[in-house]
Design a protein around this nucleic acid. Structure first.
Lengths: 204, 204
DNA sequence: GACATATCTTAACTCCGTTATTTTACTTTA
DNA sequence: TAAAGTAAAATAACGGAGTTAAGATATGTC
């Protein structure tokens, strides 16, 4: 390894350390408790060092969101229903979606409560839209296959995906904000929702 | 009017002034731009005066949320579909729900992104739950009637209402966060969603 | 007219994001 | 090897935030 390469690798290491510390802090204490100063203190650096690796706080949060999204997509790609009928894959995907949201409530909240840590210029909205697109893609694949296989009637893809995603998001937020609800009730809500949405997809 | 009564009425007047200034600031500039100091400055008082009327910032925001909720409920009670069949009333309520959310995006975001301005002690979670219940009640009434009238199959009320609300919430957030979408596309998404959910309710 | 009380302001504390400046450590090179 | 240069880090500081304590001001009561 060249000197240059070692240096770069060390830079990336600290960068990842910052990201991980921020992710931890977010997961443990929630968005309001995340501050540049706390992140820096956790890893034993001064606050200003963060700015050598991220443009500002919003940029840091954005990268935490992106990292989480990568893990999210990974999970959605491994639902364990790979060779099932497409509709079953779709349902498996919906369950995984909600499960991930419940496992990472603070990350999920930040990720899908856009503009919380962002200013509202167009570029960031585009990024946000692109982020949503990634989520759409996974749902869209199963849905397209389900229609192609004749499991459900054909319909315009985009509105259907939007609706499914919106419902998934709503149920995730509902459950995240109802921590007092027992696991059993959560399952009931989730399965009730899935039944409703699948029924809706079956009829045309 | 007694002296005491006049004094109390003036206190309430300033209290309402603070609430209204906060509501305005929230609507115009978004949650991140709301600060005690700005609210006070807008109405020509010092920041500390706010604390004579509200416990702290979270308390102030909570009351803004509650005020908005009262208007929300009022609108949901006047959908203009009062003597239609229950299922039609339900659909009208869903349209009003989304319309209100789109008219008050910043209020809606704060209201249903709980814990943003709140600490997470149990009492506040209970309040939050109670707040949700109010919204549930309106949906539940139409749904109960629709089942009683035989328009849709009978099913357990609570999970169904939760699911419908979750879907409404999801679609509202989706549209709020997609300001670039045209009105026509918005309508398409909304009607597509309503079709899906009503179809889902019709089948069992 | 003196006192008491309610109302409001000023001052101050801590924490925050962020920037400018300075120090430190390391690499390169004469 | 010593000087120069550079990258990485820390310190100091600014403005703004939420909040509290203390003081000022007005208003009602006896």
């Amino acid at each position: 390894m060249s000197v240059r390469a070692r240096i770069d690798s060390e830079k990336q290491k600290l960068r990842r350390l910052i990201l991980q510390a921020t992710t931890d802090l977010l997961a443990r204490e929630g968005f309001e408790q995340v501050s540049i100063r706390k992140v820096a203190s956790r890893i034993g650096y001064s606050a200003t060092t963060i700015y050598l690796y991220f443009k500002n706080k919003a940029d840091l949060i954005d990268h935490v969101v992106d990292d989480g999204f990568a893990r999210f997509m990974l999970r959605l790609g491994n639902t364990g229903a790979g060779d099932s009928p497409p509709l079953r894959q779709l349902v498996a995907g919906m369950r995984v979606y909600i499960a991930f949201a419940l496992e990472n409530p603070n990350w999920y909240r930040v990720t899908f409560s856009s503009r919380l840590g962002r200013s509202n210029n167009d570029a960031q909205f585009l990024t946000e839209a692109a982020t949503r697109e990634k989520g759409f893609a996974v749902l869209a694949a199963s849905l397209t296959q389900a229609m192609a296989a004749g499991e459900i009637p054909k319909r315009p893809l985009y509105p259907a995906v939007q609706t499914i995603w919106a419902t998934l998001h709503g149920i995730a937020m509902l459950l995240i904000n109802s921590p007092q609800a027992g696991i059993k009730e959560q399952r009931r809500v989730i399965e009730g929702y899935i039944e409703l949405i699948v029924n809706g997809l079956r009829v045309r």
